[in-house]
Design a protein around this nucleic acid. Structure first.
Lengths: 348, 348
DNA sequence: GTGAAAGCGCTAACAC
DNA sequence: GTGTTAGCGCTTTCAC
């Protein structure tokens, strides 16, 4: 029985119901609810009082449709189980919430096809902006260029965009690697190896540069055989460690690309060179809380500001959303957030 | 200049544009796009061809509004950084995606006020259903009852609802605790302690019951002083461990409520009873991947099927969404997913 | 097999 | 300070 009170209750109270009960027009009610200055205090109060009494809940779907704005941000990260991204997501969400926005959080699982589909869904749902940490093997930026072309701004985080048309927020990987390496140099090491990330990622390159820079700063010659690429799998790290430890002169310290690489490398030593596990010293990117519980851990970690990265990305995105899409002459920004060196005490 | 081709491009191609170009009505185009049987194959093809050519992207916001359905699920978990919930979220998302649904993932951070606000946002956004792991201290179910009252189904996961009106999916905590305890009994232990979770949580109670059940099964008397509640903080675990270890006869094995409690308990031993750290044996809930890297780890873990929990919750939710809201005589379901005992090998 | 038209709930000119 | 009205893009009856 459409039109009955029953149906209306089920459907939810609308602005029209309020208008009718108050003998006003819907526009007056709408304005009152939106604190329009042209509405008298009395009217405004009457409207709000009745709205509360009737348990009026605005239908955002209708607003979104009408305003052609979804008040929703799309966020694409490789994996929610990687705390680096989970924390960044928190930064995005907090900033979004402050701006009255929702976030649709999605994972690409490093699958480009999945990423393409996600972008499609976001377009269909008319998100107002997208923050993305692109899949590691992507070579083109096609779906993201599509977003820009239809007026949806995009901000990249963590992983550098493959073309220059995007805002980009990341850690200062170069300086972080310098800090990690210089810390080991300060501890007296001279044969310092580098377990470098995948060569295709700019992040790997930046950290590699920082590593070399630190060596140069201290007059230590760079040796090619002391840098090994890993593919971020346990097997890959084991293979790399094997090559390093079988050198005529193995390293006495190692700068690693990432948390999990460090842990796998230490496991490798535990298994094959147990006598060296307390000798070879590590520093590396990432500071997992779990490190506290480990007996064999890196000497120090490079803590990245991933929460702040998410915040900054969202801030930039909101600026872009606020901009008039007309002026095509934009300057794309690239911000590098500082890293922090955290020394792990051995006692407690 | 509204109405120009420029504006149209910016605005996006609509069903109307397609209709005009093809000299058809919008209803025909709509039906063709939605594979309505009443449309001829030829028409359907022409419409789809032009849609593709014009790069038509349906405006979901308009559909949602028209259909009074958002094709969106709300998910509320305490913390995304807790992998237990992150994995459950993945289960929800995968199932949602299969059904063409989006998920709005939110975190309560164990704050009831925040949770209230989240539910409000979800109502405003007209989500079609909600999956929630309620904050641990909540005593009422008020916001969730409100959801039900306006026809939005709710499924609880992991944490038991405080009233009987909700579907609920969780691990079989009782049987898991039995397994954990019997495993230690099988290793010859007789003085087995239990680091129990917060007394207010039904999960804690269920695990506690399982622990007692296992003891009873093997004719081991339950001793009150061997069970200590923890509040899930490191300090709380340390205090509980202190009481246990200062007993005239300290336990030789301990069943813990959760991963992090185990790790903190082991840390306590490392610090204050280093000679016992390899003697006192642990089993407990949760199987973090990071456990592999630890030197001192539990003998075995009770792995919960949290991914499956998310899947199952989403499945139930979709059933409810499909139901006609009319029949008030619902039977609310409570499913307990089995746990798995995982023994940690010492080698590799 | 196709078209005309109403309307979902809301906002924003514009008129008064 | 308030009301009238058009319309966002789409689906869906109901006619033909």
């Amino acid at each position: 029985m459409p039109g009955t009170i029953q149906a209306a209750m089920k459907r939810g109270v609308t602005i029209k119901d309020i208008a009718k009960k108050l003998n006003m027009s819907v526009s007056t009610v709408s304005k009152a609810l939106n604190n329009d200055v042209s509405i008298s205090a009395l009217t405004s109060e009457r409207v709000k009082a009745l709205a509360k009494q009737l348990n009026y809940i605005p239908n955002e779907a209708a607003r979104h449709f009408k305003l052609a704005k979804s008040f929703t941000l799309g966020l694409i990260i490789p994996d929610i189980l990687d705390q680096y991204y989970a924390v960044a997501a928190n930064g995005v969400e907090e900033t979004a919430e402050k701006n009255g926005y929702n976030v649709i959080l999605t994972q690409s699982h490093e699958d480009e096809q999945k990423e393409d589909r996600i972008v499609d869904v976001m377009i269909r749902n008319r998100v107002d902006g997208v923050i993305v940490s692109i899949t590691k093997n992507r070579t083109d930026m096609q779906p993201f260029e599509k977003l820009l072309s239809i007026g949806i701004p995009v901000v990249c985080i963590g992983r550098e965009p493959k073309s220059g048309q995007f805002d980009y927020v990341s850690s200062n990987n170069h300086d972080g690697a310098v800090m990690a390496t210089e810390f080991l140099i300060g501890k007296g090491h001279r044969r310092i190896a580098h377990l470098m990330g995948p060569a295709g990622m700019r992040t790997s390159q930046a950290r590699f540069e920082g590593y070399k820079q630190a060596l140069a700063n201290h007059g230590i010659p760079f040796r090619n055989e002391l840098t090994e690429c890993v593919d971020l799998t346990r097997a890959g790290t084991f293979a790399a460690m094997q090559r390093l430890m079988r050198l005529p002169e193995p390293p006495t310290a190692i700068v690693t690309f990432k948390n999990y690489v460090t842990l796998d490398a230490i496991d490798y030593l535990k298994k094959y060179y147990p006598e060296l596990v307390d000798k070879v010293q590590f520093t590396g990117f990432g500071n997992l809380p779990i490190l506290h519980h480990l007996d064999h851990k890196p000497l120090a970690s490079i803590e990245e500001s991933s929460f702040e990265m998410g915040e900054e990305a969202a801030r930039i995105l909101f600026e872009r959303i606020g901009e008039d899409g007309e002026n095509t002459e934009r300057v794309y920004r690239s911000s590098q957030l500082p890293c922090r060196l955290v020394v792990h005490d051995d006692g407690e």
